[in-house]
Design a protein around this nucleic acid. Structure first.
Lengths: 198, 198
DNA sequence: ATAGAAAACGGACCGCGGTCCGTTTAACTG
DNA sequence: CAGTTAAACGGACCGCGGTCCGTTTTCTAT
């Protein structure tokens, strides 16, 4: 007569059957292994399904699309990174002066983005709109800029400061034009300085 | 005995047979028409081929890939825009103070990018690496920054100033977050001011 | 005009992303 | 433990991007 569950009291989020959860995990592992061993182009939905021992339809049921799958993989790395920003050791984590944190943030972001360039590209929109990747980083920068006493449209300035660290731009500079990563970072530090100084 | 052509004297670039040139043009027209009438998703390689009255293989021969075709379409718009920067009327074209030109540039770039967002997205890498789109704009900004007496790693600063105007970032801000275009522009002007001021 | 070579053409063919639907399985009820 | 239902499963199926190769067209040289 009442709801299907006797004591839903707390924990709302548990609407996934056991086999579904198991398969989700198996698929992520399978996909990660395929990427590591054979490169990202080998990550076919059929290949992932086969590697995980499930049917093709299941992959799409769990992750919507190939981009969705890539986005889920990306989310893992992003979440770990996010944790090290929120509760890792300084200067990236809390406890260091805001400026130090900002510079550490830039360097870290620069390197992670380059490192996961393929995955980010393959994730398409699923990578960007995942609030984990984008919204959190912008929020963090916005917060640091505030602490540094920067005045102006902070959300927009934060985006402007993050933009040169986005995958397409870095791809162009580093992979295609062959620029040195350190130089790109120094350029970014210069940009940060110009944005910050009153 | 000598080369296949008697008087190649000037004009080097003419290595395209007549039917090839005709078909290239027909295909571009067909693709543009399909985009206008049915939206970009309807621009199937087969559809374009059929609309232009040629075989499917021909489309790939001329443009390599779907992205290549989109890139070629984009190139048209970009070339026109480029012309209006190089030889149009002030303040976008030459003849105005450097700062005015820079601001006009930003506004114009902002609007064209938003306008062609779909095409840019569909062009993928073919849109970015086309030196028409990217390299020229960066070069121009770099030049203007130089005229404004900005010191530092000018190529990198130019990229930093252009980055917030790139399609993925604008897409996120305007289309997804629903930000006002004018606000984004004002934010960009602020960024430019911070980069410029000594 | 004609012959020959190089280039372009066209469409059959392939693989992969994505959908659909009949079948199976997990979870809850009595 | 049996019955019911909702969800998950799997793989046949479809459309499109991309390739391949036998055929046709253009260009040049004679």
């Amino acid at each position: 007569m009442d709801g299907p569950r006797l004591l839903p009291l707390l924990d709302a989020p548990q609407p996934e059957r056991r086999d579904a959860a198991r398969n989700r995990e198996a698929l992520l592992v399978a996909a990660a292994r395929l990427i590591e061993h054979c490169g990202i182009d080998a990550v076919t939905m059929e290949a992932v399904a086969h590697e995980a021992g499930v049917g093709k339809g299941t992959v799409f049921r769990r992750f919507e699309s190939r981009e969705g799958l890539m986005g889920a993989l990306l989310n893992h790395s992003e979440t770990a990174w996010q944790a090290s920003v929120m509760s890792g050791s300084p200067p990236l984590g809390p406890g260091a002066p805001a400026l130090d944190r900002l510079l550490a943030f830039g360097r870290s972001r620069l390197e992670t983005t380059i490192q996961h360039a393929d995955l980010i590209r393959a994730a398409g929109r699923a990578g960007t709109r995942s609030f984990a990747a984008y919204s959190f980083a912008v929020m963090h920068v916005r917060h640091l800029l505030g602490e540094l006493g920067v005045a102006g449209d902070l959300p927009l300035l934060a985006v402007a400061l993050m933009a040169p660290l986005e995958a397409p731009i870095l791809d162009q500079q580093v992979r295609i034009e062959g620029l040195d990563v350190d130089r790109v970072y120094r350029g970014w530090v210069d940009l940060a300085a110009r944005i910050i100084r009153q």
